Amino acid sequence: MSSDMSYTTEEIAKLLKISKLTVYDLIKKGELVSYRVGKQMRVDAADLEAYKQRTRAASTTDRPAVINEPLRSLSSAPMNGNRPIVITGHDIGLDILAKHMEKNIPGIRPLRSFVGSLDSLISMYRGESDIVSTHLLDGDTGEYNLPYIRTLLVGSSYLVVNLLFRNAGLYVKQGNPFGLKQWSDLSQPGLRFVNREKGSGARVLLDEQLRLHGIKPERLVGYDNEQINHLAVASKVASDEADVGVGIEKTASLVKQIEFIPLIRERYDLVMLKNANNHYWIQSLLQILQSDVFKQEFQSISGYDLSRTGEILFES
């Protein structure tokens, strides 16, 4: 293995015979050193070999060995006696949820995977995640999430529970120089756009609005300029690399030199498969979501509506 070689996350997953989500989790925890080239994460051959050596050395200790197993098998592979529960999505509310789960539900270890809404549902269909978050708008019905869930999880038994509501809309520069007020204004000539990646809820929201308003994506300068989260989109607008992008209100409060134009109230839900292995922690999770302690921690964050947090919206 040449020390000059480097690998993508897909190549690492194939070499180690694990899922991409597991690779991202290793990177997030600092166990696998990586760096970004454009939009792509890469791992040097030397760092991969160092990781493998550490894993071999740890095989005689009590360090969990499941890091070399496919993510879809984690439900049956305990880590230090605790079952991993993979939670997908980007919102900070999911980090708060994971913390409360770890504290209040014995026998589990929450793991965070930063995957967009559509890809999250696909990962659940593949058996690679346990709790997925989603905010996907069906433009024809105005309904959030359920049309996509019913399509992707056909044949499965699942539970859909509300986590929160939040405002989504446009990030613009201070003073809103283009006077943007509605989705149709995105057809203005001269606008420089910054987009989210395919599979994210924000990307689906934009594409649905473009379709409904008869705006062809190729007319948006910068439609292919993709960023991996709301903060990155807002930062591009703040640094004058773009004039407008789609995101949520909470992130706008974190970035200077931009304004937020609210255009839609989106429903952010959690989806869990119903089976014998999940029953015990799903009931505990519902209790956490409905508890005053959990909601009080959320109330310190601006831009969230918790009026239906913990409410079961659909059960198949």
Rank of each mutant, 00 (worst) to 15 (best):
D91F: 08
G303L: 06
K274T: 08
S59I: 02
D44A: 12
G247A: 10
I312F: 11
E297G: 03
S316P: 08
R54C: 04
Y125P: 00
L26M: 13
G310Y: 05
D140K: 15
N80T: 03
N176T: 13
L306M: 12
D207R: 09
H135K: 05
A46M: 05
D4N: 11
I108V: 13
T22K: 10
D185F: 12
K295L: 05
K295I: 10
L212M: 12
P217R: 06
N195L: 08
Q227R: 15
R267W: 02
H135D: 04
L48V: 07
Y51T: 10
N167S: 14
N162I: 00
G199M: 06
N277P: 00
F294M: 05
A232K: 12
L220Y: 01
Y223S: 06
G303W: 03
Y158C: 04
Y268C: 08
L74I: 09
S129P: 04
M5D: 14
L263C: 09
V33S: 10
R265I: 07
G214A: 09
Y171F: 15
P70C: 09
P147I: 03
S6A: 06
P262M: 11
E259W: 04
Y223W: 11
I85H: 01
Q40L: 11
K39L: 09
R267A: 10
E218K: 14
D25Y: 05
F260R: 03
N104G: 02
K295N: 12
E218H: 09
T8Y: 06
L16Q: 07
L212K: 15
I264T: 12
S239T: 08
P147N: 07
S129I: 05
N225E: 08
W183R: 03
M1D: 07
L48P: 05
D140C: 04
P189S: 15
M5P: 00
E11K: 12
L205Y: 07
L15D: 01
G222Q: 02
E226I: 08
E311R: 07
D4G: 06
P84F: 13
H279S: 14
L285C: 13
E143H: 07
A252I: 04
L71Q: 15
L111H: 02
